[in-house]
C-alpha cells in the first residue's frame, strides 16, 4: 500500500530515499498489515491507509486535540505519534467506541447535551473524555486537584479525592480545543457520564 503524495515528500536533489517498514497495526480490535513510511504519523495512517477518518487533523502540532486516540487505553495525539512506534500497541479510535451498534455513553451524552456544532473536534473530544475519565478513576491528579490553579489553595495530595467538578473537567480536557465554542455543553455531557 502506498500513501498519498504530500508536498513534504517532494524531495529535492540529494534528499535521502524514503524508508518503509512492514508492520501490523491493531486498531479497534482489528489487525491491519500496512507498509508505512517511517515518517508517517498514526493520524495519516488511520485516515489515508485504513479509511478511519474519525480522528481529525486540526493543527498537526499537538495543539488542538482533534486527532486524539487511545493507545493502550491512554489518550494520545495521533499527529505526534509515528506509526512505526505503535505496531505492538492497541489503538482505539472514535470508530471503536460504540459496542454492537450501541453508542458509547459519552457519545449518547454528547447528543443529548448538544455538545457540538460543526463536529470537527468531537471525535477527539470523545476519545479524550474516555481517557480522561479513566485517568480520574485511577486517581491521577490535575492542576485543579493539586490546587495549582486556584490562588492561595495548597492541596496536600489526592488522597481525599474530590469529585469531578466542572473545573476539573475543564482543566483535564484543556488539550481539546473547540473552534465552535461548544465548551459549556461538552462539560455538561461529560458531567452527565462522570461518576
Amino acid at each position: 500500500m502506498r500513501g498519498p503524495v504530500r508536498s513534504e515528500d517532494n524531495n529535492g536533489p540529494g534528499f535521502p530515499a524514503p524508508v518503509t517498514a512492514d508492520i501490523r497495526l491493531s486498531v479497534n480490535g482489528d489487525e491491519h498489515p500496512v507498509t508505512v513510511d517511517t515518517r508517517e504519523t498514526l493520524l495519516d495512517t488511520l485516515r489515508e491507509h485504513l479509511g478511519l477518518t474519525g480522528a481529525k487533523k486540526g493543527c498537526d502540532h499537538g495543539q488542538c486535540g482533534a486527532c486524539t486516540v487511545l493507545v493502550d487505553g491512554r489518550r494520545a495525539k495521533a499527529c505526534l505519534t509515528l506509526t512505526v512506534t505503535v505496531d505492538d500497541r492497541e489503538i482505539t479510535t472514535v470508530e471503536g467506541l460504540a459496542r454492537d451498534g450501541v453508542p458509547h455513553p459519552l457519545q449518547a451524552a454528547f447528543v443529548e447535551q448538544d455538545a457540538f456544532q460543526c463536529g470537527y473536534c468531537t471525535p477527539g473530544q470523545l476519545c479524550s473524555a474516555v481517557g480522561m475519565l479513566a485517568e480520574f478513576a485511577a486517581g491521577w491528579p490535575s492542576s485543579v486537584t493539586l490546587g495549582a490553579v486556584s490562588p492561595g489553595a495548597v492541596a496536600p495530595g489526592v488522597e481525599g479525592r474530590p469529585p469531578l467538578c466542572d473545573d476539573e473537567i475543564r482543566e483535564r480536557m484543556s488539550g481539546n480545543l473547540c473552534r465552535c465554542g461548544a465548551y459549556p455543553n461538552i462539560v455538561a455531557a461529560i458531567r452527565q457520564v462522570a461518576p
Binding site: R75, A76, S143, L146, G175, N176
Partner: peptide, 18 residues
C-alpha cells in the same frame, strides 16, 4: 509536591501521557 504540581501544569493530558 512542587514536582507533581509542575508536571500537571505542563501541556495537556494527552501530551503528559506521551
Amino acid at each position: 509536591p512542587m514536582l507533581a504540581q509542575a508536571v500537571v501544569a505542563g501541556g495537556s493530558g494527552q501530551i503528559r501521557n506521551m
